[in-house]
Computed example of a mutant assay.
Amino acid sequence: MRILLKPVFTIDEVYAKCLAGVGDARLVASFQVILPAVSAHADLYDLKAGLSSLYELPQNTALNEDVILDGVTKKQLKSLYSQYMVPQEKPARIYYDLLIGMAPHGKCPYCGFGQASTLDHYLPKSKYPFFSILAANLVPSCKDCNTGKLAGVAVVASEQSIHPYYDSAIFVESQWLYARVEETHPPSVTYFVSPPLTWVEESKKRALKHFEDFKLAKRFSIEAADEISSISDSFSESIEYLDEQEVRRQLLRRSAAEFRKHKNSWKTALYQALASSNWYCSEGCRI
């Protein structure tokens, strides 16, 4: 999990750039009429997100062909993103690329290891069409996080996954992701969530919700399996000269380095778990 700086460009400038790519003058006129409403929705989003209360925003249940405001259909509002922001040849594509570029080191902020190559609508445009091109609702993400996350929308505060632009720094400053070693052949690890006891209940549930929504237990375990194989290979040439204490010391050094970078990365949890496992340090590392 990573926290990102909130985008600085406004809904008005992104909206104007999208309209610059619309060839139908009548449609442009219709979109211009509803701009004040779109801007008002953006302000409300910013207010609610700042209070971790996006779950309070009502969902739009209209059908795609239904007119939802001053002659503009739900489908047309959603198309501002799909037809006028995503395509390479459209003027608003510049904002799409800028948002992708906000991912730290090109990594997805939801999982921390996938390549950020697409934009995820934190609130889905199918249910919140007014936020289809709102920069604060568009999070650079990997394809697995964007397409593989659970599709439900939060209806209470504790069901909200972590929002990279708005949520409290506790989700990156305090460790809540851990792993335990499974005595299998080859060794493996299982990931789990254990937030600090000092956290309020809502934050604890949100960390778990994020972990479940993006199916991180399985995805982290797959990454860890490859890393464990690499660790075994690195030990193989000198393992006969390494006792349990030296194996643990090397793992602790690596876990400390990963912890300094990201407290809640799958690598931090992995190396902590391996270093704390007597079985792995004495036997598992030799398998």
Results as ranks from 00 to 15, higher is better:
Val22Gly: 05
Pro195His: 07
Gln272Asp: 14
Ile228Met: 00
Pro36Thr: 13
Ile94Pro: 04
His210Ala: 08
Ser232Ile: 12
Ser188Glu: 13
Arg249Trp: 09
Glu283Phe: 08
Tyr122Ser: 00
Lys149Ala: 10
Asp226Glu: 14
Asp243Lys: 04
Val67Asn: 01
Lys74Asp: 05
Phe214Leu: 07
Glu212Ala: 02
Leu123Tyr: 04
Lys78Asp: 06
Pro196Ser: 07
Phe31Pro: 02
Tyr81Leu: 00
Gly23Asn: 13
Lys209Gln: 15
Cys142Gly: 15
Lys209Ile: 11
Pro7Asp: 12
Phe259Met: 11
Phe171Lys: 07
Asp24Ile: 11
Glu227Gln: 12
Val153Lys: 01
Thr198Asn: 09
Pro164Met: 06
Asp46Ala: 14
Glu237Val: 10
Thr268Gly: 02
Ser230Trp: 10
Leu77Pro: 00
Arg93Gln: 14
Tyr166Asn: 03
Arg260Asp: 12
Thr147Trp: 09
Leu177Lys: 04
Asp226Asn: 10
Glu202Phe: 08
Leu54Asn: 01
Glu159Val: 02
Ser158Gly: 00
Ala136Glu: 15
Pro195Val: 12
Phe220Met: 06
Ser39Tyr: 00
Val155Gly: 09
Thr268Arg: 07
Val189Pro: 04
Ile3Trp: 06
Tyr122Leu: 07
Ser188Pro: 02
Val181Tyr: 03
Glu246Thr: 14
Glu240Pro: 00
Val33Asp: 10
Gln88Lys: 14
Phe259Gly: 03
Leu47Gln: 15
Met1Gln: 09
Asn137Val: 09
Leu63Ser: 12
Ile162Lys: 06
Tyr165Lys: 01
Leu77Trp: 08
Lys205Ile: 10
Phe235Tyr: 15
Leu51Val: 00
Tyr55Phe: 13
Phe113Thr: 09
Gly23Trp: 01
His105Thr: 13
Met102Asn: 01
Lys125Ser: 08
Ala151Asn: 12
Ser53Arg: 14
Cys145Gln: 03
Val38Gln: 06
His210Ser: 08
Met85Lys: 07
Ser161Arg: 09
Ile11Glu: 13
Ile11Arg: 05
Ser203Trp: 14
Ala157Thr: 12
Glu173Asp: 15
Ile222Asp: 15
Asn60Tyr: 06
Lys125Tyr: 03
Ser39Glu: 15
Glu183Pro: 03
Val156Pro: 05
Tyr280Met: 02
Ser282Tyr: 00
Pro187Asp: 08
Ser132Lys: 03
Tyr84Thr: 08
Phe235Trp: 11
Val14Ser: 04
Ser232Thr: 10
Thr61Leu: 14
Glu56Lys: 10
Pro87Ser: 07
Asp24Gly: 00
Asp70Ser: 09
Glu283Cys: 02
Val247Glu: 06
Val193Gln: 05
Phe211Gly: 02
Gln115Ala: 15
Ile133Met: 04
Ile287Asp: 06
His105Met: 12
Ala136Lys: 11
Ser234Trp: 08
Tyr55Asp: 05
Ala151Glu: 14
Leu19Ser: 03
Glu258Ile: 10
Ile287Lys: 05
Lys75His: 11
Ala275His: 05
Asp24Arg: 03
Leu150Val: 10
Val22Gln: 01
Pro195Ser: 05
Val193Glu: 08
